[in-house]
């Protein structure tokens, strides 16, 4: 399990653990948190699952496609990622994730 803290757009923190193997996007959605649209279903095609990630450990670097899609969001910042491209792995350090503002 991976420990997650998700800060939604209203500023509320959701603390929970998600199983390894799936993506961060799937974990957020499975938790029933409203704010993440993820319209392309996690195929790195749309940038509607933009989040800011503070990881206490290393994350796999982003692909060129993810980087390019993030160039299209209005509030790209340090830590900007597409949640569908972050794979949760067992034993991973906890993640603190803030859902980015709506486009």
């Amino acid at each position: 399990m991976v420990d997650l803290v998700i800060i939604d757009r209203a500023g509320s923190a959701h603390e929970f653990s998600a199983p390894g193997g799936g993506s961060l996007m799937e974990a957020v959605r499975a938790q029933g948190i409203y704010d993440i649209k993820a319209l392309c279903g996690g195929s790195c095609s749309c940038a509607t699952c933009h989040v800011y990630v503070e990881a206490s450990g290393p994350l796999k670097p982003m692909s060129e496609d993810e980087n390019d899609l993030l160039d299209g969001v209005s509030e790209r910042r340090e830590g900007s990622r597409l949640a569908c491209q972050i794979v949760l792995a067992e034993g991973m350090a906890p993640l603190r994730v803030t859902i980015a503002p709506e486009e």
Binding site: G22, E26, R29, A30, Q31, G32, C40, G41, S43
Partner: peptide, 27 residues
């Protein structure tokens, strides 16, 4: 649930149906 994966990931058996739910069933 999401329909686009039906002709993609779902057809290939890569991901189970649960992962295509727009929100968990209890939501």
């Amino acid at each position: 649930y999401e329909r686009p994966p039906l002709s993609k990931d779902y057809m290939q058996g890569q991901r189970g149906f649960e992962s295509f739910l727009i929100r968990p069933a209890a939501f």
